[in-house]
Design a binder for these strands. Structure first.
Lengths: 123, 123
DNA sequence: CTTGTGACTTGCACTCTGCAAGTTACTTGG
DNA sequence: CCAAGTAACTTGCAGAGTGCAAGTCACAAG
């Protein structure tokens, strides 16, 4: 059972409710990797933020439960999976881009994200 | 000492670094209230999400430490404070708007935010 | 038949969150 | 003058989330 369970929303506010799904320190980082083309468990682990294996497994399960990603087996023996964004997950691209624009302006120690990332559409 | 201390960033990624400041379940909710004109402790407490007093005090201190808000005494005896957005805090308006647009499309149980909120500029 | 790899799971310590209650410094009503 | 009220917190404690290390399972390669 994932630690990051789905809770009842605290209110009908779109901000408060969205944060129940993505308001933690890892979900949007995994989403960024997915947007950048990563699909497999080991690829997420290799990102510079060094997510740990238990949290990654937990977050992937929660994101799947929330309909942000789909998990499919790309081979049966031994079982191997890949993870892909759903339309709902891809719909968060503008949120990530807005965060990047903010960081670019107010957190000068950050990288500037690649043009290709900032030019993505949400569909 | 606030529980939500400032950690060393996990990487230079603008998304990962931003999430160290706003990647929790309350900071952006408080920010929403500030954008909507709330300024005082008791006003934040009265929001429908029912933040508790210890978390509110902790988050306000962290947001001040991160430069998202400024705390000023509006009267000395007894001491009473109000909290206002800095330019850095107000710069997150597009992030909240992007979250609202996403929720409007993919979380149908949510309210539609007021026009006035969606029309705000970030400056 | 030993080693390696991908995808996890388990255990433990520590931090964060939620709830209830208490505190401080006044202001107001009787 | 005294009791009650209010704003802005603080404290204590239980439970959920996070970080780190190690272990598991099913194969594949040498």
């Amino acid at each position: 059972m994932p630690a990051a369970a789905t809770r009842a929303p605290r209110s009908g506010c779109p901000i408060a409710t969205s944060l129940e799904l993505v308001g933690d320190r890892w979900t949007l980082v995994i989403l960024r990797d997915l947007i950048c083309g990563k699909r497999r468990y080991g690829e997420f682990l290799s990102s510079p933020e060094r997510i740990t294996t238990n949290i990654l497994a937990d977050r992937l399960a929660a994101m799947e439960a929330h309909g942000l990603i789909e998990k499919t087996a790309y081979q049966a023996h031994p079982p191997r999976y890949d993870y892909r964004l759903t339309a709902k997950g891809r719909g968060l691209v503008p949120v990530l881009q807005a965060l990047c624009r903010w960081a670019d302006r107010f957190l000068p120690e950050c990288w500037t994200p690649p043009e290709s990332f900032m030019a993505l559409g949400a569909d």
